[in-house]
Amino acid sequence: MTQQPLSDERRPDERRPANDGPKAAARNRAALIGAAREIYAEQGLDAPLSAIARRAGVGQGVLYRHFPDRAAVAVAVLEENVRQIEQAAAADGADLIQVLGVLTWHQTESAAFVRVLYADGPGSHSDAPAYAQALSRRVELALRRHLPDGHRLAEHADDLMIAVGMVSGAVTGPTREQRERRALAAWRLLGVEVGPVRPFDE
């Protein structure tokens, strides 16, 4: 597929990065994943792929070289979200409060992530795609490694991910600030303490 030229009237955050060889591919992929997360949060999962390419500052040909279809983009966003949560859980000195803060950031930033986690809620697990079930289990394992005995989310086997699904269902609103406020309110109503809502800092 040929790369489509973009308008010269780009926003400052949509300028095409300089081509510097092998580093460009990794940079473009990371830019596309970040752009997809933003676009999905703003416009939903049905947003056009061209909007993602524009936000990342690349042509659609570059997008299709990395991701052959819409599903591949969504899975890449989800994989990156889960990877960051796993890294947060594996970091030195990590605890449940901190990891929940990273999880909550991804809940507020990524409409796709919210939908996958919520699909794993009570009564719907069997209907979730296999990849969604696998990603949800990875999130659960990352959280459980820091779940203290006697914690309110450890009382029953399903409580942890039911709570995550409930918070995910509360994450609505047109702005990230509104979504974060609702997510934190949901955790508070569940009686669960959450650390700073921010991405994992490698």
Results as ranks from 00 to 15, higher is better:
Gly61Lys: 09
Glu38Leu: 13
Leu49Trp: 00
Ile97Leu: 03
Asp92Met: 01
Gly101Val: 05
Val62Ile: 15
Asn81Arg: 04
Gly44Trp: 03
Arg54Trp: 09
Val77Asn: 12
Gly44Asp: 04
Val116Ala: 15
Ala72Arg: 11
Ala31Arg: 15
Val114Cys: 11
Tyr40Pro: 06
Arg83Met: 03
Val82Lys: 09
Gly123Val: 12
Ala128Asn: 13
Ala41Trp: 05
Pro68Trp: 02
Ile33Met: 04
Tyr64Pro: 04
Gln87Gly: 02
Ala30Cys: 04
Asp92Arg: 13
Val73Lys: 11
Tyr118Ala: 15
Val75Ser: 07
Ala30His: 06
Gly93Val: 07
Ala90Lys: 06
Gln107Cys: 01
Ala47Gly: 05
Ala36Pro: 09
Ser124Glu: 13
Arg65Phe: 15
Gly101Cys: 01
Pro122Gln: 12
Thr108Tyr: 00
Val82His: 12
Val99Met: 02
Tyr40Val: 11
Ala72Gln: 09
Ser136Met: 06
Gln107Lys: 08
Phe113Asp: 09
Glu79Ala: 12
Ala112Met: 04
Val139Lys: 07
Ala132Gln: 02
Ser126Glu: 13
Ala134His: 11
Val62Gly: 04
Ser124Pro: 00
Leu96Tyr: 02
Ser126Phe: 09
Phe67Tyr: 10
Arg54Ala: 14
Asp69Cys: 09
Gln133Phe: 06
Leu49Asp: 05
Tyr40Thr: 03
Arg65Val: 04
Ala74Phe: 00
Ala89Pro: 12
Ile85Glu: 00
Ala91His: 04
Arg29Phe: 06
Glu42Arg: 15
Gly61Thr: 01
Asp46Glu: 14
Ser124Tyr: 05
Gly59Arg: 12
Ala89Thr: 13
Ala134Cys: 01
Gln43Met: 07
Ala128His: 07
Asp127Ala: 15
Val62Pro: 05
